[in-house]
Design a binder for these strands. Structure first.
Lengths: 123, 123
DNA sequence: TATATTGATATACTTTTGTATAGTAAAAAT
DNA sequence: ATTTTTACTATACAAAAGTATATCAATATA
């Protein structure tokens, strides 16, 4: 028996390295304690450092700086320095960053239906 | 100016607590170093502890046990004890677990298009 | 009877991630 | 002139996540 238990290998076999890299890219952008709150805050209209900090509340400046840098490095947000007086610095979503919402949408869908299917009313 | 910079608040305002919980559930299932490799391995047809361990190779038994327990607790896989001699133990995806593929699909999509848009040929 | 295999657990350690708290420079407001 | 605001950085520490290595009980195989 050469197929040892597998009914239809064609559906799961095709998973090139690029897909794994792509998934890891996506995970890097959204995992960690503060990434989603920060992205949500910016999407909500809080563009300035202080605004985001005030909006999220429990975040320390160290974490906020660290995460903003990483998000910028990953091409999800931009850091714009406006040379008005005083200097204004605004963080905004890139086009690609905005598209992460499509990922969050299906994550909500799966999460909700999974909660229903397991009927866990705890936590 | 009462809308302070926001063009269309209706699109982003609606984000109930349940959505946040749902996203966190989903993240818990797929984040961490070994979750996806383990799920992929089981989906690929490796149901037994040893099979998964051999398939993933660099994983330690401690991590494999820990993650399998967590995945079971989260309702993504089941642990089935078959009382043949010797005892066989098989880990399999739940129906809900199989559906996580829809999430991975859009994560691949976003990751690929994001890579294109930022043109990072490094790492 | 001795060795190998399966499905793990135990203990100690390192690395990564996040927290707590203080401080800073430049400009604005009082 | 002093205080406040903005946008951070620095240092030390705690907690979570992951690694390394050894061990184990039950059965199977040589």
């Amino acid at each position: 028996m050469i197929m040892n238990g597998l009914q239809n290998i064609s559906e799961i076999k095709k998973c090139p390295v690029q897909y794994v890299l792509a998934i890891n890219d996506t995970l890097n952008v959204i995992s960690g304690k503060w990434k989603l709150p920060i992205l949500a805050s910016i999407l909500y209209g809080n563009y300035r450092y202080k605004d985001i900090q005030t909006n999220i509340d429990k975040i320390t400046p160290r974490m906020l700086s660290k995460e903003l840098k990483e998000l910028e490095l990953n091409g999800v947000i931009t850091r714009n320095v406006y040379d008005s007086t005083p200097v204004r610095i605004e963080y905004k979503m890139t086009e690609s960053g905005k598209n992460i919402l499509t990922v969050l949408d299906v994550m909500v869908d799966w999460g909700v239906s999974h909660r229903k299917s397991t009927l866990k009313h705890s936590d």
